[in-house]
Design a protein around this nucleic acid. Sequence first.
DNA 1: ATTAATGCAAATCGTTTGCAGCGGC
DNA 2: GCCGCTGCAAACGATTTGCATTAAT
Lengths: 126, 126
Amino acid sequence: MRFSKQRELIQDIVQRTNSHPTANWIFNKAKKEISNISLGTVYRNLSQLNKDGVINIFYDDNIARYDWNTVAHDHLKCNKCGKIIDIKLHNRELKKEVLKQYKFEAENIEITISGICENHMNFKEK
Amino acid sequence: MRFSKQRELIQDIVQRTNSHPTANWIFNKAKKEISNISLGTVYRNLSQLNKDGVINIFYDDNIARYDWNTVAHDHLKCNKCGKIIDIKLHNRELKKEVLKQYKFEAENIEITISGICENHMNFKEK
DNA sequence: ATTAATGCAAATCGTTTGCAGCGGC
DNA sequence: GCCGCTGCAAACGATTTGCATTAAT
């Protein structure tokens, strides 16, 4: 076996959700399959999977969230329900603008937009 | 006196730097003026100042940073030296695009760009 | 005298780490 | 037998909180 079953389980859990889970959420999910799995193992594997480029880490306020989507992308965060939605905004002009205006060589652009998602706009409340 | 001298000192410290300080940095600075000030007081006042709209909080990875600039703006973060630079990017089109394409009502847009700052570009290394 | 804010220490939360033991080659 | 990975528990860093005391009106 190439990888431990713990590692494979953790990778699967992250890759099977769009919910941008926290380590603790993943831990609870994992316990259903391997009841004595430890939180340390979850963190160690998440960190390793990230180093290997298999999954992505980002921070929502001060807590880590994990994402199967390793391609650079952006997030919409609903202030009503907390849901985080993946989106892709084009930013070619942004890199150029930043280089010209601030002499800063952009490597990574992360746009986080908070507001109200479709399901929670006032006029749609049931 | 309207506010405690601790609160006034903390507000002053935040407003007199462009370094986006952490609570601990502020605490150390404050101790030079009020040697027995406590870290709890620093946190309590930073949180209150933020609620009052006097200062801003944002998170750099998983640690809180405080900013005198309460107007929505963006950040450049240098991967070499860690410096965070305030910038203002225009985003009128972004709000429109997000509403049209994702039916999401954007309230706040935060763009964080990481890369290499002017002082740390290769060809400028001394 | 009342009320808010303080210093201090303990508690909490998310995360990391040391270590002895186990599993697969 | 070796080496990597595990579970467990203790340690850690940032932040919050309970409480008895102090400061301001």
